[in-house]
Structure formats: structure tokens, C-alpha cells
């Protein structure tokens, strides 16, 4: 498989009145064609900022991509001109946002919003575009597609809006789709429907997918590889199989022990991660996780661990080998 995306030493900082927020701090990862990558972490860990940085959608000010490279289809997106990056957004790389209610324009019909990317990126006639949109709406199982094209977002239910968003993301056959918490606001049965749909469609079109979520179960079901993020950094990077079989970073281990599972002994007590998520303006010294970590040693307080390889497809950023 060839490499589709490579992120090298990406840092995105926010210069706020209260101080500097290193929302994404020196992260590197790559993604192959057609692969699904899960990006897991709690709120404020930088997973969404990371996604927005790839498409250069960080509001500036206060935010700024301060360093790094995002190499997508052999060009560095961070050095492209505004016109050139516009040709990539929604075309080669698309995004599905978390809240369909607020990310769609309430005064434009669904049809218009669905056609917009193709009108911008494709030399197609209106008829052809309309045909493709109808086809896509059918693909995402929206009934009565022709009439739905003329409906406004408020006439759709949450699940239907998210379906329309998925269709919108796929209009131009992108090589990479970034889904930022695509199902968090939806009910479980709808969530399952949509994730299956996304998986089927991306597989059919050979599209690579980045799923951003805090739900470890979703990642287990859909991702090939996983990056676990904490306080702006990737703390563990692995194939999904390896990550769930032997999680090596104390944070990942903690996360897994703190979620109740359907297949687990019911009387087993949950083991929460103690303490609170860190304040990004006043990050702890050394490893940001050390105040909450039960394995911490002296070194964690002063030195920030970098990612190091533990086996061929598994990297962790930790000073301690938790298996010993």
C-alpha cells in the first residue's frame, strides 16, 4: 500500500489571553491508501485541532500551525497557497463534522449544500451534478431523495442530517475523509447504522478514513490503526489488534480499565484514572500524564518522553515499561 498522508512534527498552538495553549504538540504519523485510522482521546486532547490542522482550518488568530509538515499526495499542504489548498478541501480530502445541526447552513437547501463541492471542483453540468447527488443520497439511505434535495436542514432528523453530511463528504470521491466524532450526538442504533454505512462506502471507494472519537469500542470495530492522544501529544500508536491486546501506555491501560464493557464480569469494579484532565495552559512538567499515572517514576516529572518503538507496529511515549 502506498502512503497517502504523512504528518511530520506538526505543532498547532493557540495564543490566548491567558497564555499559550499547545493544542497539538509535535505529532507525527502516517496513513496508507484505503486505511482507517482511529484517533482516540478525551476532550481537549487535541484530536480535533489535529484534524483541522490537516485542512488548514485553524482560526488564525488565535491559532497557528507553528511547525511541521503535512504531506498529502506528495505535496506539503502547509506551504500551499490559499487557492491551492481550496482545491484540496472537499475534493481530495473531506471532513465530516461532529454536529450536523450546527455545521450545515440553515438557510440553504440540503441539495444546494450537497452540490456545492462539485460545482467548485468539477467541470460538470448542473444535470450531471444533480444526478450524482441523488445517487449519493440514495447510497446513504435517505428515502425520497428528489424531494429531500429541496428540504432545509431543520426538516431533517439528526440521523438524516449526518447521513447527508456523509454524502457531502463523499461527493468528489476524496482520497481521505476525516470524520470528527461523527456519531457522538446520535442514538446508539443510529450510530451503528451510520458507522456501518461509512465503512461500506469508504471501502467501496477505496477512501482512507480518519475517525476521531473518544469511544474505544468504535475504534475497535472500525479502525486498522490507532493513535491515542493525551494533552496534545500522541502517547501510543499501534495497530488496533496490538493496542487492545497489549496496551502499553499507562493512559491507554487506564482508559480501557475505566469503561464498562458489555462482555465483562458485571461485579468487577471500574478502575478510573484518578484526577482531572490537565489544564492545557498550565501543563504539568515532564510527561503531562504523570500526575494521574500510577506507574510514575522520578524521571517522568522532569523529562518529556518521546515516542519509541516497542515492536514493529507499536510505539509508546513512556519512560516506564509497564509490563515489568
Amino acid at each position: 500500500m502506498s502512503k497517502l498522508l504523512e504528518v511530520k512534527n506538526l505543532s498547532t498552538h493557540f495564543f490566548t489571553d491567558d497564555g499559550l495553549v499547545k493544542a497539538v504538540d509535535n505529532i507525527s504519523y502516517s496513513l496508507n491508501e484505503g486505511e482507517t485510522l482511529g484517533l482516540v482521546g478525551e476532550s481537549g486532547c487535541g484530536k480535533s485541532v489535529n484534524a483541522l490542522s490537516l485542512l488548514r482550518l485553524i482560526p488564525n488568530p488565535p491559532g497557528k500551525i507553528v511547525s511541521g509538515k503535512v504531506i498529502f499526495e506528495d505535496q506539503n499542504l502547509l506551504t500551499l497557497s490559499e487557492d491551492d489548498i481550496c482545491r484540496i478541501r472537499g475534493n481530495r480530502m473531506a471532513m465530516i463534522f461532529q454536529e450536523p445541526m450546527t455545521s450545515l447552513n440553515p438557510v440553504m437547501t440540503i441539495g444546494r449544500q450537497l452540490m456545492e463541492p462539485m460545482e467548485i471542483h468539477r467541470q460538470m453540468t448542473r444535470g450531471e451534478i444533480q444526478e450524482r447527488c441523488l445517487d449519493l443520497l440514495k447510497r446513504v439511505h435517505i428515502p425520497e431523495a428528489p424531494t429531500r434535495m429541496n428540504a432545509y436542514p431543520h426538516q431533517f432528523s439528526g440521523g438524516m442530517l449526518q447521513r447527508a453530511m456523509i454524502a457531502m463528504g463523499l461527493t468528489c470521491n476524496p482520497r481521505l475523509v476525516i470524520a470528527d466524532e461523527p456519531t457522538t450526538a446520535l442514538d446508539v442504533t443510529i450510530q451503528a447504522q451510520l458507522l456501518e454505512l461509512m465503512k461500506d462506502l469508504t471501502r467501496e471507494f477505496g477512501t482512507a478514513l480518519i475517525i476521531i472519537t473518544h469511544n474505544l469500542g468504535i475504534v475497535a470495530r472500525y479502525a486498522d490503526r490507532v493513535n491515542v492522544m493525551y494533552a496534545g501529544r500522541i502517547v501510543e500508536k499501534s495497530t488496533a489488534m496490538d493496542l487492545y491486546k497489549n496496551p502499553r501506555h499507562p493512559y491507554t491501560i487506564g482508559l480501557m480499565a475505566s469503561v464498562p464493557r458489555l462482555d465483562q464480569d458485571m461485579k468487577k469494579k471500574l478502575k478510573p484514572i484518578e484526577g482531572q484532565p490537565p489544564d492545557l495552559i498550565h501543563l504539568p512538567s515532564g510527561c503531562s500524564f504523570h500526575p494521574r499515572c500510577s506507574y510514575r517514576v522520578e524521571r517522568c516529572l522532569n523529562e518529556t518522553p518521546e515516542l519509541k518503538t516497542v515492536n514493529e507496529n507499536h510505539e509508546i511515549a513512556c519512560w516506564v515499561d509497564v509490563r515489568t
Partner: peptide, 10 residues
């Protein structure tokens, strides 16, 4: 519909 955090079981 509830995914279990284990790829093998899933």
C-alpha cells in the same frame, strides 16, 4: 449496536 473495545471480539 454497542461496540465492545476489543477488535477480536468485534
Amino acid at each position: 449496536a454497542v461496540p465492545i473495545p476489543d477488535p477480536l471480539i468485534e
